[in-house]
Structures are given as C-alpha cells and as structure tokens.
Design a protein around this nucleic acid. Structure first.
Ligand SMILES: [Mn+2]
Ligand SMILES: [Mn+2]
Ligand SMILES: [Zn+2]
Ligand SMILES: [Zn+2]
Lengths: 173, 173
DNA sequence: AGATATTTGCTAATAATTCTCAATTATCAG
DNA sequence: CTGATAATTGAGAATTATTAGCAAATATCT
C-alpha cells in the first residue's frame, strides 16, 4: 500500500475505468521524490515540471492533483492563504500533521499517532469511515516573534487572543 | 475573555486605533447567537443579516470577518470546498474540532482537550506561540456509505485508500 | 460641534480553479 | 497488430470567492 509504483497507479486507475497517462505518471514521480517536509501547489508543480522540460498543461496539473487526492494518493492541505498544497498521502507509519506560522507560512511537520487514534475513536463512535485527519496548528514562529510581532505586522493585521495559557493537565478527554 | 460584549469589542478595537461600527457589532451579535455547531460563510452571513433587514455590504462582511478572525474573535475554518466558514473562537473550555463528510459536507463537532495539549507541547518544543489548532477529520458519513459510496458518487470521484485499519494501541507518541 | 482618520458600500479587479471542446491517445477486443 | 472507442489532454474562456480602489459617510477625540 505504501511504495507507489507506476504499475500500482495503473492498476488502481484501470480498476475504475481510468487510464495511466505519462502526465499522471510524471506527477506521481515528482511527489515520490519530493524531499520530506515539502509541499507543492498546483502552480509550483507546474513550473517544477516545466523547468525539467516535462511541461504539462496547468489544466492537467489541476485535474490530476485533484483526482489523485480523491483517490487517496495525495493529501490536499490548506497551509497558506489562497491556494492548496499537496503531498503524498502516506498513511499509518508516516502520517503526520502540520504547524504553520500564520505570518510567514513556514511549515513544520510533526508526528503524533495519538491524534490519529483519537480521530479514529471519534469517527467510529458515529459510524463514519475515516479518510484522513489533519491537525493544523496555527502559530507565530520565533523569527516573527523576534521581529516584534504583532507590531511588525501590516497595519490591518492583529491577533491578540491566544490560547496558550489554558490549564491542561489530564490526558484523556 | 469569553463572553464578548459590544463593549469588550469596542475596547479591543479602539486599543488598536480601530472603531466599533454598527456593522461590526451586528456581525459579532450574529455569531454570539449562532446555535452551537453552526458555521457561516461570508455569503451566508450576508444573507442572514439581509433577511433580518440589517443589510451590510458584502465587502464589509468579508472585511469584518477577516479582521475579527485576525483579532482572534472568530475562527476561520476550511470545512467545504471553495469557501471559508467562520465561528466564534472560544478558547479553552469550548475549544473543539471538526469531523466532515467529504461527500455531503455534513460537519460534526467534537471536544478533545488532549489534542490541544499535544499541539501545545509541540509548539512549545519549537519556541512557537500557539494561536489556534484545528483538527479536521475527513470522513464518509453513514448516509453516504449507505447510498453506496463510492459508487453513488459522481464519476470523477474516487477514494479507495483509507487509513482505518492502522494498528494503533499505545497512547503517547 | 468640528477635525480627522477610519470605515462603508459601490464597483472593478484578482487569482485560483473549473469548464468547454476539438484533437490526441490509452485500452481493449478481434 | 490494428482499429474502435471512450478517456484525456491542452488551450483558452468562464466561474467564483475574495480583495482593491475610491468617494461619501461616520466614529472618535478634541
Ligand atoms: Mn506534510
Ligand atoms: Mn465549530
Ligand atoms: Zn513565521
Ligand atoms: Zn455525508
């Protein structure tokens, strides 16, 4: 289930009456060789392939990435304002979450199996079927803090209400 | 910090050189009286107010809701494709997460303090400042399952790869 | 009450994503 | 291997949520 090959992809596509195209194969390849912790937007994927001389139309990029996300091969993430990011969806042992700085969009991944476990418990309690769970932690990174956040932010920006002083001692909910 | 009044809002706005307007007050009022578990998009907020004869321009709706999210008064959520939803940001005792059906967008809230606790631990380990953390659990709801998902889905939809059979026993990460 | 910077409400502009459709091509049956 | 056929691509137009620009209105502070 984990090490996706072109053949695995073809089988899965064909089983649904769909086809393996060079474009889809190249896109899978990009994500498979993307260094851990990287995430690509449609636009970024487009230019990355374009620079390698393997141009794929932006329409096809958008279509493929959406299809592969719906197939569960890619994970669709909301890490920044305005556009989605994608990464390989690697279930259990590599499942991870994201911590994002809301000022500079720097993203840090972290593992935490108990979050997945809690989600699973929640989902089963209601008879739902789990597809994915993503914890997004919005933060201000140390650099932004050092630069005097919030005073260094654009004048229309503000975020006073933080939740870090909450009393949390016990483990279970 | 929790029961927001027009006065609290005014104080907080004024402290930043901003102003309390009838529009902002009305918007806060809507969210304060929104039944638990409800979430509004900008468009929905617009028509809700419009139906009550308290029309506020869509521009102002968008601006206010974004401002109040950045102030930490509202929480900005990605629960459905294509647009954001907002709800009151109620920190510790009322902090919650969301389980969404990726087919019909039905959303269920659930509480889990240990997720917040884990996030906080993670954030502090890196010297970041926590602003918010949102766990979004993507699922297929029982109704969609009963309707024969995925076969009942539009032909371009597919999601085979689920992560529900992962071996998760231990509690801590 | 008057001065002034902020906010509102129009409308126009952006920007990400989706749609349309003719041309291309992967798959499959023969 | 070859041809039939349905899926896919690429180019550009269309859509949609959201933001920007600006004159008129107004909240706040003397
Ligand atoms: Mn990641
Ligand atoms: Mn909620
Ligand atoms: Zn940052
Ligand atoms: Zn559903």
């Amino acid at each position: 289930m984990l090490p996706y090959t072109a053949n695995t992809l073809k089988a899965e596509l064909n089983s649904r009456g769909w086809r393996l195209t060079p474009q889809r194969e190249k896109i899978l390849h990009v994500f498979q060789n993307l260094p851990r912790g990287n995430h690509l937007s449609a636009e970024e994927l487009y230019s990355l392939l374009d620079q390698r001389g393997e141009t794929i139309s932006l329409s096809t990029i958008y279509r493929s990435v959406k299809l592969m996300a719906r197939m569960g091969i890619l994970r669709e993430l909301e890490l920044a304002e305005g556009h989605k990011h994608y990464e390989l969806n690697q279930p259990y042992p590599h499942h991870h979450h994201h911590m994002v700085c809301i000022q500079c969009n720097k993203t840090t991944e972290f593992n935490n199996d108990s979050i997945l476990k809690h989600s699973l418990k929640q989902v089963e309690k209601f008879g739902f079927q789990l597809i994915d769970c993503q914890l997004t932690v919005m933060t201000i990174c140390p650099e932004a803090l050092r630069l005097g956040w919030p005073s260094a932010l654009p004048s229309n920006w503000s975020c006073s209400r933080v939740i870090s002083e909450t009393p949390l001692e016990d483990e279970e909910n």
